[in-house]
Simulated scan of single mutants.
Amino acid sequence: MSMFDLTGHVALVTGAGQNAGAGIALALAEQGAAVAVNDLRAERAEATCAEIQKAGGTAVAVPFDVTDLDAVRAGLARAGEALGGHIDILVNNAGIPADMGYGPFRDITPERWRGPVEINLFGAMNCVHAALPGMRQAGWGRIVQISSGAGRTGLAIGVALYGSGKGGVESFVRHISQEEAGAGITANTLALGLMQSAGGPGISDIAAGIPVGRLGRPEDVGAAVAFLASPESSWLTGQTIDLNGGSVTR
C-alpha cells in the first residue's frame, strides 16, 4: 500500500465548488477517497464532482448551506448513503459569505458582523457536530479546518470580521483535538497565505515578495490536506500549520 492511501475512506469537503476547495476534493479522490463535494451552489459542486469522475474517482455532489445545521445533517446522510459509508474525513473549507464585511471595523454596521463569523465558526461547528458520531463509532476520523493567516496576524486591510471567524475556529479545532484524540480522531488547521484566486491590483508585486516567489495554488492545499487526512498523520493533532510559501514564519 502506498503512503497517504485513502482507499475505503469517505470524505466531505465543504465549499469545494471552486478554488482551494476543488483542489482539496480532487486530491483526496486521487488518493482513493470517495468524496462528497459540497457547495452552496449546486452547479459548482456538480462541476467539481464531474471533474473527479472524469479522472476515474468516486464523488457525489451534496449542495447545502453549512450554517444550517438541519441541512448539514441531511447532507451528510445523503453523502453517506450515496458513497456507502459514514464521513470519516471532514474538510471544513467553506468560509466566504455573500457579504464578507470588508472595510475598517469602525465603519461596519452591526447587522453585517454576523455573516463572516457565522460561516467560518458556526458552519464548521455544524459539520463537526454532525460528523463526530460516525467517526467515534468507527474509532477513526480526520478533521481538517481551512483557515487563513488573518486568523492570527492583525492586518490593516479591512478583514477584522473574517479574521475573527478564522481565529475562533482555530481555537475550536484545538479543543476538539483534545476531546476526541482518545477516539482515534485528529483535528488540525491549515492557515493559508495569499492564493491565486485572490486577484486584484498589485497581486504580482505581492507574489514577488513571497519567498518562494508565487501565490498558492489549489493543488498546494490539496496535497497538504491529503497528508493530514491520511493514516500516516495519526500523531499530528491540535496544530495550526501555516501554508503560505514562507511569507510568514512562526
Rank of each mutant, 00 (worst) to 15 (best):
14 T>A: 07
215 L>T: 13
166 K>Y: 03
111 E>G: 05
23 G>I: 10
223 A>H: 08
71 A>T: 08
47 A>N: 10
8 G>C: 04
22 A>V: 03
165 G>A: 01
57 G>L: 07
182 G>S: 10
146 I>Y: 03
60 V>T: 15
178 Q>I: 12
157 I>M: 13
35 V>M: 11
219 E>D: 15
242 D>I: 00
104 P>E: 13
57 G>N: 08
49 C>E: 14
80 G>V: 12
93 N>P: 11
229 A>L: 13
90 L>F: 12
159 V>I: 13
129 H>N: 12
90 L>R: 07
119 I>T: 09
236 L>Q: 14
226 A>H: 06
128 V>C: 15
210 I>V: 15
172 F>K: 02
78 R>Q: 14
132 L>H: 05
16 A>V: 12
24 I>Y: 08
32 G>Q: 08
175 H>P: 00
2 S>P: 14
200 G>V: 10
25 A>M: 04
80 G>A: 10
53 Q>P: 03
170 E>L: 08
84 G>T: 02
134 G>N: 02
218 P>G: 07
68 D>P: 06
26 L>A: 09
227 F>G: 00
131 A>C: 09
108 I>V: 13
194 L>R: 01
104 P>Y: 09
119 I>K: 07
173 V>H: 02
246 G>Q: 01
111 E>H: 11
233 S>D: 09
175 H>L: 12
2 S>V: 01
96 I>R: 11
47 A>S: 15
37 V>D: 00
95 G>Y: 04
98 A>V: 09
21 G>L: 04
151 G>F: 01
154 G>M: 10
77 A>I: 01
15 G>Y: 07
162 Y>Q: 00
175 H>Q: 11
191 A>R: 12
93 N>G: 06
155 L>K: 10
114 R>N: 11
90 L>W: 04
130 A>W: 05
26 L>V: 08
161 L>W: 06
64 F>W: 11
94 A>C: 11
41 R>F: 14
30 E>N: 13
5 D>K: 06
233 S>E: 01
74 A>E: 15
109 T>P: 05
200 G>Y: 02
112 R>K: 15
29 A>M: 10
6 L>A: 04
43 E>T: 09
124 A>F: 06
124 A>C: 13
126 N>S: 12
106 R>F: 03
151 G>V: 01
